[in-house]
Each structure stands twice: as structure tokens, then as C-alpha cells.
């Protein structure tokens, strides 16, 4: 079902947690709310679930205003970070709970529980209690409980954050497939930009309660709307060089590069993969010192310094350079992003 936030604000006392949020989510979309902790993404989800009231603004589910509709009548399913499995019930009872509350008859309940359990491959666990399950198994049960009743939308609050790295990647893939199979609108909250990039059809980046950008993962990555989005999305993070543009030249204390931009004070953002490192000088390269290299297996992160300016570059796995040795960089200025220069007094960024 389509979901719409219209100028939604949430205040706890004087503290504004979500400010003037407007989002339109289409039917069947997988939208990820991405942001650092305290950015209001979980509060947004909880407002949609009806677990938190709205201070001002409107929330629509399927074009129906739901501001005053109690949680139980919104017909949404939610997966909690803690999984929130009922500890005193067996796995089968846990999954059947939403059906039991809806007074579905026993046979139908059983049939649906079995079908979902088969889908998530947790049939052998049905008679156990939640405390006998591993984290990954609990995660599946929480998912099963959400999908057993075909709700209007799924809400997921950092569902993978309690899993170990390997399982997280595996579950991420399964979640994506599951959502494609079911085709149900899903809103997913995370602070992990890798999850956002891989899962989302569109990502809403939030910061301090304000929406920064709402776009496809590729656009978020390639055309960040502001410096925050540019910095938050991508790993390792984007490099920033403060300087100014004078007659087609970007000039900082250490670097001079030809760019095709109007004059002014700017902060140039350049992704690590757009800095190429050479051990020998080439045409149009600038010298830099190697601070340290980190071999990741399939690639190498090269930490560089040009005077006081620190940069990170991505290089091939076989790249080798001694610490403190001099290397030469080619910076792809046509892939660079330019943002207004950060004021030194502006601590909010």
C-alpha cells in the first residue's frame, strides 16, 4: 500500500526529533530510512506504526489518514531490533499470534504457520521456545510472524543489527528476495549504509530529524544532495578538500587542480575510487606521502597526506608502497562533488 508522510513533526517536550518530514512511498517499494543514531528514523517508523503520536502533520496509509487510528487497526507488521518474540510461547504460537488475535480458526492458522515456516526454513523449530534459538533463527521467526498475515506494509527496525557479519549479509539477501516475492511495501530503518544501498529501491537519508535526500541508492551515491549525504554514504568515506575556485582552478593550501566550475569558496568531495595512485610520476599527477596502507584482500586502502591534507584512495590489491614513501595521484575532477565550504563555526554539520 502507498504510504505518505505529510509535514510530519514529532517533539518530545521541546526537543524536535522529526521535523517537517514529507515522504511519498509507492506501493510495493522497499524504502530504507538511513541515518546516524538519533536522526529520528526509528521515531518515524514508530509514528507510522502508531506506537508514537504525531505532534503535527499527517500520515496516510493507502490514502487513508491514520493519525488517530490505533496501532492494532493499522494492519502493519513490524520486526523489532530485539525481535520481541514472546518468550513464554512456542515458535509456532509466536508465529500464529497475529492470526489468533484475529480469531482465525485453528486449521487455517496451522496451515498458514506451516507455509510461512517452510518458506523461511524454520519448520523443525516450531515446537521450541525462543530462548532455545540462535540469533539468526530468532530473526527468521520474527520475520515469519510479520509475514504470516499479509499486512499492508512491513516495518523493520534495524532487524539485522544483532546478527554477526556473515549472517547479516546472508539475511540481507534473503530479505531482498522475500520482499520481491511478496511485493509488499517495506520500510526499513538502519544506520548501516551497506544495507541501505543493497536493499532499498529508494533511500531516505535523515539527519537530526530532517530529511536530507530521498532517492535511489545509485543517485544517493553518485549525486549526493549535500555534504552530509556525501560523507555518510560510501565506505571508506568521501574525501573533502577545502579551498576556492579561481578562474577554472581549484586551489587549496596544498593542491591546485583544473576544474570547470564558477568561482567561489568550496569544499571539494572526491570518492576514494576516484583517486588513482601511482608509484611513478605520470602526466597530470600530484605528489603525496603514504601514511599507511590497509590491505582488504580484494583491494587496498591507501591513506595519504599532502601537507596537512589527509586523503584516502582505493587501489588494487597488489598495490604496495612503503610508509612515508612518495606516490603520485591522479584525481578525477570530473567525478568530484562541490559543496559550499563549511564554516569553521558551524558545528552542526
Amino acid at each position: 500500500m502507498p504510504i505518505r508522510f505529510q509535514n510530519v513533526t514529532k517533539k518530545f517536550g521541546d526537543l524536535s526529533v522529526v521535523e517537517d518530514l514529507s515522504l511519498e512511498i509507492d506501493d510495493g517499494e522497499f524504502v530504507v530510512l538511513l541515518g546516524p543514531s538519533g536522526c529520528g528514523k526509528t521515531t518515524t517508523l514508530r509514528m507510522l506504526a502508531g506506537l508514537e503520536s504525531v505532534t503535527s502533520g499527517d500520515i496516510y496509509i493507502n490514502d487513508e489518514l491514520v493519525n488517530d487510528v490505533p496501532t492494532q487497526q493499522r494492519d502493519l507488521a513490524m520486526v523489532f531490533q530485539s525481535y520481541a518474540l514472546y518468550p513464554h510461547m512456542s515458535i509456532a504460537e509466536n508465529i500464529a499470534y497475529p492470526l489468533r488475535v484475529r480469531k482465525l480458526d485453528h486449521n487455517e492458522r496451522d496451515k498458514r504457520v506451516r507455509r510461512v515456516a517452510a518458506m523461511l526454513e524454520i519448520e523443525p523449530l516450531l515446537d521450541r521456545k525462543p530462548r532455545q534459538l540462535s540469533g539468526g533463527e530468532r530473526q527468521r521467526v520474527a520475520l515469519a510472524r510479520a509475514i504470516v498475515r499479509e499486512p499492508r506494509a512491513y516495518l523493520m527496525d534495524e532487524p539485522l543489527s544483532n546478527l554477526d557479519a556473515r549472517l547479516r549479509v546472508q539475511m540481507r539477501g534473503e530479505l531482498k528476495r522475500l520482499q520481491h516475492q511478496l511485493g509488499t511495501t517495506t520500510i526499513y530503518v538502519t544506520h548501516d549504509q551497506a544495507e541501505a544501498m543493497t536493499l532499498a529501491s529508494r533511500v531516505a537519508v535523515m539527519k537530526k530529524g530532517r530529511l536530507q535526500q530521498f532517492d535511489t541508492p545509485l543517485n544517493i551515491y553518485n549525486h549526493p544532495a549535500n555534504r552530509f549525504v556525501a560523507e555518510f554514504v560510501g565506505s571508506p568515506s568521501m574525501n573533502f578538500i577545502d579551498g576556492k575556485i579561481e578562474r577554472g582552478m581549484f586551489v587549496s593550501e596544498e593542491i591546485r587542480l583544473a576544474v570547470d566550475r564558477p568561482d567561489g569558496n568550496v569544499s571539494m568531495g572526491i570518492r576514494p575510487e576516484h583517486i588513482h595512485v601511482f608509484t611513478q610520476p605520470q602526466d597530470g599527477t600530484i605528489p603525496a606521502k603514504v601514511y599507511v596502507t590497509e590491505l582488504m584482500g580484494n583491494e587496498t586502502f591507501v591513506f595519504l597526506s599532502i601537507g596537512a591534507q589527509k586523503l584516502i584512495a582505493r587501489a588494487a590489491a597488489d598495490f604496495r608502497a612503503e610508509e612515508e614513501s612518495t606516490v603520485w595521484l591522479r584525481i578525477e575532477t570530473d567525478k568530484a562533488h562541490f559543496f559550499p565550504k563549511r564554516q569553521s563555526t558551524d558545528y552542526t554539520e
Binding site: A49, G50, L51, T71, Q72, R74, D75, L76, A77, M78, F80, S82, A84, Y86, P87, H88, Y97, P98, V101, R102, R145, R149, L155
Partner: peptide, 27 residues
């Protein structure tokens, strides 16, 4: 009792009293 459990019950479609009787009290 973690709040999440009751909230899960509410989202699952149960009433406050239902959540209290079926989820919280047994715990």
C-alpha cells in the same frame, strides 16, 4: 518486561488488555 513485547503484540493486532493478558501477565 521489555516494552517491545507489548508493542509487538499491539502491532500484531492485539488490544492493550489483550496484550496485558496474553503477553505481559504470563511473563
Amino acid at each position: 518486561v521489555p516494552r517491545d513485547l507489548e508493542e509487538a503484540a499491539l502491532v500484531d493486532g492485539d488490544s492493550r488488555l489483550g496484550a496485558l493478558v496474553r503477553v505481559v501477565l504470563p511473563l
